[in-house]
Computed example of a mutant assay.
Amino acid sequence: MPTTTYIALLRAVNVGGTGKLPMAELRALCEGLGFSGARTYIASGNVVFRSELKEAAVKAALEEALAAYAGKPVGVLVRTGAEMAAVLAANPFAQAAPNRTVAIFLDAAPPADAARKASGLKDEQIALGTREIYVHYGSGMAASKLKVPAAQAGTARNMNTVATLAHWACDA
């Protein structure tokens, strides 16, 4: 069976003191699940690896193993290397600073009214992707009051991180 390069993005890991998960543990967990070449990027729950499993099986295996490790559910969003490269290529705010633009990764397509239902909008811009919501924070994220209800089950990564993960996945 052919192997696929995947990127797993964990929700709420090593952010603000919650969900501590050393990246060495995440790599070991992935290897223990039979995923090969596990490589983590920064301490916020990003891991690139190869597997013969389908995306849904990868997600289920990781979520089960992480729940056993953490003692509570840990959300996981999974993309193939090609999908991550497509997210980067489709960035509607490519001319903006990559550290002020995020892709919020979702399991399914965002609802058509996701941008309209956002609140606290100041100078942010929102665009919908395939299974992502793109947000450009004109003044940066720190002072933003933006709330996007459709993004609650997702996890955001800035475009610098997306670019690195896409590059790693294509080199894997």
Rank of each mutant, 00 (worst) to 15 (best):
M1R: 10
P2W: 11
T3Y: 14
Y6S: 05
A8E: 01
A8D: 01
A12I: 13
V13M: 09
G19T: 07
P22Q: 13
M23I: 10
M23R: 10
A24L: 09
E31P: 05
G32P: 04
G34C: 12
S36Q: 14
G37F: 02
T40R: 06
A43Q: 15
G45D: 04
N46P: 09
V47F: 05
V47Q: 03
F49N: 06
F49K: 05
S51H: 11
E52G: 13
E52K: 12
L53N: 10
K54D: 15
V58R: 04
V58E: 03
E63M: 15
L66W: 08
L66H: 10
A68R: 14
K72E: 15
V78R: 02
R79N: 04
A82N: 05
E83H: 02
V87E: 01
A89R: 08
A89T: 05
N91P: 04
P92H: 00
A103R: 00
A103G: 07
A103D: 03
D107M: 07
A112N: 08
D113G: 09
A115I: 01
K117F: 12
A118E: 04
A118Y: 04
L121P: 01
D123L: 15
D123I: 12
E124W: 03
I126K: 00
A127T: 00
T130M: 09
S139P: 10
M141A: 13
A143R: 13
K145L: 09
P149A: 12
A153W: 10
A156G: 09
N160E: 03
T164L: 12
L165K: 01
W168M: 15
A172P: 06
